[in-house]
């Protein structure tokens, strides 16, 4: 074997070892949470409110709260995200306005989530007088989710062949008809995948909801959009740092439920993607 070959084998071997440094902790992390958490999972844990200063009982209100936040965030961010991506791909001319939007998307995606929390606090909670509420929390999470939705939608629209647009326009359809009937239907899988992914991220976020919606301890379910709710990630933070003598098994179980929820959403987006890719004909 030549010297170059030997060096290559050594280099590739070392690279493989370094990659193990990434892979092993991921597997260990998941195993650690699952192994320690699964024991405390029961129907009661999922469906009962916490009791005795959260040291007993379940996490039902936090699950419901996170679910409400996900749905609210989607309702608020999906239309704006999809429409602005349509603008960027289908309508935008190469001018200052377009460049500003692109710049804005890049920077929205880089703003730390705690800064979104500050913004939500000063604008939605204080200025708009929404108080610490579902509405304020969803609005904050929605702005945070926008860049992911826009980027995913943009890619989905760009992957639709240009010829479809030409066909439609050449038959006398208007610009919007073309987008609506000849572009959007073929972009929907990509849009859905991106949306679910961004929502799964929003579901796991704690910092943006700290001052805008999250309740420390609120066993009853919310009655209106102006109520606070408990949320899984904040609940995990609270029970692992703020509650003395917290049984660790409950914390692990909460982490397990949170991770499962996020993975479930990711799984949905992967299945959606695979399903539509198989069906697609172009």
């Amino acid at each position: 074997m030549s010297g170059a070959r030997v060096r290559q084998n050594i280099a590739f071997g070392l690279m493989g070892l370094v990659t193990m440094l990434v892979v092993l902790p991921i597997i260990l992390t998941l195993w650690y949470v699952v192994a320690n958490g699964i024991g405390a999972i029961s129907l009661d844990f999922i469906l009962q409110p916490p009791r005795n200063g959260m040291r007993e009982g379940g996490i039902f209100p936090a699950i419901v709260g996170t679910f409400i936040l996900i749905v609210g965030t989607m309702i608020l961010s999906l239309p704006i995200g999809v429409l602005s991506a349509i603008y960027l791909v289908e309508y935008a001319k190469d001018n200052l306005f377009t460049r500003l939007i692109k710049l804005a998307v890049v920077n929205l995606s880089g703003i730390p989530s705690i800064v979104y929390g500050l913004f939500g606090l000063t604008v939605f909670v204080v200025l708009l007088r929404l108080g610490t509420s579902i509405l304020a929390g969803c609005m904050t999470l929605a702005i945070m989710s926008l860049p992911v939705i826009i980027t995913a939608t943009k890619e989905a629209l760009e992957s639709v062949p240009a010829s479809y647009r030409e066909i439609s326009l050449s038959l006398g359809a208007t610009k919007w008809q073309t987008v609506r009937h000849c572009v959007l239907p073929y972009a929907i899988p990509g849009i859905l995948t991106g949306t679910v992914l961004s929502l799964s991220r929003a579901a796991g976020e704690t910092a943006p909801i700290l001052f805008t919606v999250a309740a420390f301890y609120l066993p009853r379910l919310p009655r209106s959009l102006f109520d606070q709710v408990m949320a899984l990630p904040y609940h995990l933070y609270v029970i692992s740092t703020q509650v003395p003598n917290m049984p660790l098994s409950l914390s692990f179980a909460t982490a397990f439920v949170l991770i499962s929820l996020v993975f479930l959403m990711n799984l949905v987006s992967i299945i959606l993607r695979a399903h539509y890719r198989r069906k697609r004909q172009w």
Binding site: V23, T29, Y237, A255, L258, F263
Partner: peptide, 16 residues
Amino acid sequence: LVEILASIPSVVLGFI
């Protein structure tokens, strides 16, 4: 696996 890591909520890692 890398995608899975990306989706683990930060509060879970903080807890660990």
